[in-house]
């Protein structure tokens, strides 16, 4: 825990300072934080041994809620848009969760993928409502009632997202140490014993699923604000796969891992897009192979020398 705090504090300090030194990095870092939030949701599910290949659903749903509300000039305010869109995502996760928590392993993963792809198709096909593949523009909202210039707005959004990411990470860390968090790990370890403790593994997983939907939704709401545009691509399976990739890259041994993974992912993507624009997915693939073979506990594991979560260490 102490190491996690040190790494987290170091990362936080770097993130606070960096945009002030390099203003060009503000949006990239905000995107990394958003993806880190979604990957944190994946981490929660991975603690139960379940992988979702469909969390782009919550990311996109929340982003579109922001887009619709902003376009309708309803609650055209960051402090309203973000909480409402995140809550809407949580609600959707609760509805989907009622169904998917009955399944485990590959069925859980593929059901999530299937539902997210249905949503992706709806976003693409319902052109008159969603704007189809072109997506929807998100007019820049006010922040605490103040209309800001783009650069100022992006900087403020970055720091707000950073604050939310810290709160989310601390909250998830606390949850994972609680009896409920340990019960979540128990689903992976021995669901039979959990049932024989009189505990509903479905309820435990349901709670974690809603939490992961909220985290992905929070990321999606912010990304809609900083990018100023939402497209169905946010719900596409590649996006969902990226969240899993980021979680594995960063490591699931601690809540800092997904954010480390998201930052590294953005760095790789940024450099690969410049130096290997046609093959950057191959670069990511090779990176993932290296992580799996040589650092199975991800970047976080490399930094702490920790074993994967749930080893009791």
């Amino acid at each position: 825990m102490a190491r996690q705090l040190i790494i987290g504090a170091g990362l936080l300090a770097a993130l606070i300072i960096f945009p002030l030194l390099s203003p060009w990095s503000t949006v990239i870092l905000t995107v990394a934080l958003c993806e880190g939030l979604a990957a944190l949701g994946i981490l929660v599910l991975l603690r139960a041994g379940q992988v979702s290949f469909g969390h782009g659903l919550y990311f996109a749903f929340s982003a579109y809620v922001v887009a619709f509300m902003a376009a309708a000039r309803f609650g055209h305010e960051v402090l309203i848009l973000v909480p409402v869109a995140t809550a809407a995502s949580g609600l959707l996760a609760a509805l989907v969760g009622l169904f998917v928590v009955r399944y485990r392993a590959i069925f859980f993963g593929m059901l999530n993928l299937a539902i997210s792809m249905v949503f992706f198709s709806l976003l693409e096909k319902l052109f008159s409502i969603t704007g189809g593949a072109d997506g929807k523009r998100v007019p820049r909202p006010t922040l605490a009632g103040i209309s800001l210039e783009r650069a100022e707005f992006e900087l403020w959004i970055f720091y707000i997202t950073l604050g939310l990411a810290v709160l989310a990470a601390l909250g998830v860390a606390r949850y994972l140490l609680s009896p409920g968090g340990k019960a979540l790990e128990a689903i992976k370890s021995n669901e039979t014993r959990l049932e024989y403790l009189g505990v509903s593994s479905r309820k435990v997983l349901f709670g974690a699923y809603v939490l992961s939907g909220l985290l992905a939704g929070l990321g999606g709401a912010v990304i809609a604000l900083v990018s100023g545009h939402v497209t169905p691509e946010l719900a596409y399976w590649v996006r969902s796969g990226e969240f899993v990739f980021i979680a594995i890259l960063g490591g699931v041994g601690g809540v800092v891992g997904p954010f480390l993974g998201a930052l590294m992912f953005q760095i790789i993507r940024g450099y690969a897009a410049v130096y290997a624009p046609e093959t950057w997915h191959a670069v990511l693939g090779v990176m993932l192979l290296v992580i799996i073979f040589f650092a199975p506990n991800g970047l976080y594991g490399l930094m702490t020398g920790r074993k994967p979560a749930g080893t009791g260490q």
């Binding site: 609680s178 009896p179 968090g181 340990k182 128990a186 370890s189 009189g198």
Partner: peptide
């Protein structure tokens, strides 16, 4: 049938949590 990756005390405290229905996310196991 135990939670193999957890410590012995975690196994027992989880059982006691189940009995007492203490699931507060603010309580450390």
């Amino acid at each position: 049938q135990l939670f193999l990756e957890n410590t012995v005390i975690e196994n027992l405290l989880l059982a006691l949590s189940a009995r007492e229905r203490t699931w507060s996310p603010f309580l450390r196991l």
